[in-house]
Amino acid sequence: PGLLEPTSTLIRVPKSASTLGIAIEGGAKTRQPLPRIVTIQRGGSAHNCGQLKVGQVILEVNGISLQGREHREAARIIAEAFKTKEKDYIDFLVTELN
């Protein structure tokens, strides 16, 4: 069991707009080893959902761990989760801890 587990939250973001509307920084081999939300754009699916917040760190996307993923790979996983037509939502496991 990881230390982050007790404070992690699962947030389901419906694809309610044509964009997800978050900016992330971080990834493996950077100062911020897991992607952190730095912006939530108004009018995007994330903003419409109302539960994702700036400063949250993304641990998993649709059950896929972002641990050890470099920035571009993490960004690709999130982009593909938004693009896929298999699901009309994305599940984010996030934590406020950094």
Binding site: T19, L20, G21, I22, A23, I24, E25, G26, G27, K29, T30, R31, Q32, V38, T39, Q41, H71, R72, A75, I78, A79, F82
Partner: peptide
């Protein structure tokens, strides 16, 4: 030797 200081900042991607 602070490991944290040697790691580069990350780029930012808008999704």
């Amino acid at each position: 030797r602070e490991k944290r200081l040697t790691l580069p900042p990350s780029e930012i991607t808008l999704l």
